[in-house]
Simulated scan of single mutants.
Amino acid sequence: MKRTADLDAARSRVAMALFACDGHPAMAVLQGDACTGRTAELARRLPDELARLWTLFAALGGTPDAAASIELAADGLPAAGTGNPPVSRVAVADLAADLDRRAADLLRELTAVEAAWTAVSARLDGAQAALDRAARLADGLGGDPLVADGLRPLREAVMEVRRHDLADPVAAATARLNRLAALAASTLARLDELARFREDYPARSAALHAAVDELAAAENGTAREFAVVRAKIAGSGLPPAPRAAPVLRARLRQVDALARDGQWPTAATGCAAVAEAVTAARQRGLRLRLDAAGLLQRRDELRGRLDAYQVKAAAAGLVEDDGLAAQHERARALLHTAPCDLRESTRAVHAYQAALAMLIEERR
């Protein structure tokens, strides 16, 4: 009684598994000649395995006695009614157990094929949607050849995944799918950025023109400061006053012309380059103005040190010393002559300091 109940339970499980395999979505994936590689191997093996299991299940269903056995031909299928001579016998209970295992294995393989195909298909659908949206964005950007060319890598990647991975999802290349997703994201991001750039260009252009005007004013101020420093400091070592603004203004006019012609990728690159150049010119101008101011500060610092040393000399009663007074006068004359020679002035102040220190030491 128990063996009969076990046999009925096995028959029920096998029937459910085989019906599930028959209607499994993976069977549609495996049909036709589109499959390649490992998926093509499964397309040849799994439907044949399903047909064999149905044949064996039919023989199992026609033998209700769990203690009975079934004759099998050389191909492993029932020999009865085929004209093929039997070569072995299998107990009905053992056949039921074998079918139970094989049907479950087949169902797992079909489920794995479906999962692989679904994963590849989802990646491909996402990339195709990105490509379609990117194409619409490209059309909205006026059909610039550079924009159209920018879609080619994504289009080719979609075709490659369709050709290789969708045809053989079981062996799909993860790296290729990841590259497709990354390429779709970067292509859309670039076109979105271009679309925003086109929309915002009037404001961007106005801001850049204003920045160039501010830079021109700053450079004019730097030129005036350089003129003052050169008049007051000999051999200042300052470079020519910066004049980047006229060049950048001309470049910005070129970018404006590109924008009017709808050449948005080139205009975006040019706009970014001008903005970067304006920032660099502003920073360089600030450094130069600090350098120029530093020269005057150095002169004033030397004047202050000389005054402090003279106060020290007076406190030590050395103001009337002829040699020290001569050195003080030479340093003072150098520091108050325009243009001032900072090197000579520095040496003169140091000489005065050394002479003062020596006289003070001699008096101790």
Rank of each mutant, 00 (worst) to 15 (best):
T174N: 12
A206G: 13
A313D: 03
A58F: 11
D6V: 06
E219Q: 01
A112M: 06
R152F: 05
V170R: 08
L42M: 14
V158R: 09
Q254K: 13
R152A: 08
A175I: 05
R11W: 10
A130N: 00
A217L: 05
A10H: 04
A20M: 14
L342D: 04
M27V: 12
A210P: 04
T36S: 10
L60I: 15
A357T: 13
P240F: 02
E156S: 09
L50D: 02
R101A: 06
A210L: 08
V311A: 04
A34C: 09
G323W: 09
D321G: 11
A355D: 15
A210D: 07
L194W: 03
S345L: 06
M358I: 13
A267E: 01
L356D: 01
D192I: 12
A241I: 14
A51R: 14
I360A: 11
P202H: 12
I233R: 06
M1K: 13
Q327M: 13
A68K: 15
G37W: 05
D165H: 03
L7G: 02
R287W: 11
R253P: 08
V212G: 00
D307G: 09
M159F: 11
A17R: 01
A26P: 04
A79T: 07
A119C: 03
A308S: 14
A292P: 00
A231F: 13
V255M: 03
V274G: 01
D322S: 12
L107F: 09
A34F: 12
R243N: 13
L151D: 03
A59Q: 11
R251S: 14
L238D: 03
G323E: 11
L296K: 15
A93P: 05
A5C: 09
R243I: 05
L72G: 09
R299V: 01
A272C: 06
A10M: 08
